[in-house]
Write a protein that binds this DNA or RNA. Sequence first.
DNA 1: ATGCCCTTGCGTCAAGGA
Length: 258
Amino acid sequence: MRIATFNVNGVNGRIDLLIEWLAATQPDVACLQELKSPDDKFPIQAIEKAGYGAAWHGQARWNGVAILARGCEPVETRRGLPDGAGDSHSRYIEAAIAGVLVGCLYAPNGNPRPGPKFDYKLAWMDRLIAHAGALLEADCPIVLAGDYNVIPTDADVYKPERWADDALFQPEPRERYRRLLGLGWTDAIRHLHPDDTIYTFWDYWRNAWARDAGIRIDHLLLNRQAADRLVAAGVDREVRGWPHASDHAPVWVELRDA
DNA sequence: ATGCCCTTGCGTCAAGGA
C-alpha cells in the first residue's frame, strides 16, 4: 500500500498536474494540502474520473486538506484537530482506508516571527501533539502525513544559516516535532534514509529548484503498527521539475500488506 | 532589511506563502 502526501499549492490551478502524478505513481492514498479551494469548488469529478474517492475540507483562498483513496471512498473519521473552537483554518482531515488510519495535515507557516502567526503555529502544534498522543491508543496502523512546516534538523536544509530566522527552523517548532517522534512516531523518510540529503520543498524564488536549494518539511509519521510494515519511502522529485509545478514535491511510503 | 516567484479572489492590487 502506497501512501503519499503532496502540497499541491492550489488544487484547481494544478488539477492537470495532480491527475498526471496520480496516473504516473498510482498511490493507494494521497493526502493533499493547500487546496486553496472552497468545498463546492473542489474538483471531485476530475478526481473520480482518475479512479479516486475523496474526503476534503476546503476553505476559500487558503489552506484546505483532502484525502484521496484509489478505487474506494475514504471513511472520514475527523475534520479539524480537537479543541478547535475559534480555529477557522482547514488544516486537518482524517480517514480510514483499508484498515489504515490516515491523518492529513497542513501545519501553519508561522511567519513572521515573533507575532500572532508564530504563536498560532505553536498552539496548533500543541493540539497536534495531543491528538497524536491519543491516536497511539488505537490498535491499527496510522500514518500522519502532510506539510508540517518544520525543518527538523540541519541535515534537512541546504544552508541552515539562511533559514536561521525563519519560523520553520526555530527551536520551538523543532522541539515540538521531536516531541512527536518521542511519543512513538517514526519519521519514515529519515528512518529509511538516515544519511541522505532529501528535500521536499524548493522555493519559487532565487532559482531554488535549479540550485537544489531545498528544505525537508513534508513528512510521513508512522505509529508502531505502520512502521512495522514500512518497506520503502521516497520523494517524487521529478514532479517538482514538471511545467507549472507546485513548490512542493510528493513524498510517499510503501507499507506491506498485513 | 528586502526582493525575488506564485496562487487566489470580483482583482487590475492585496494577502499569504516559506
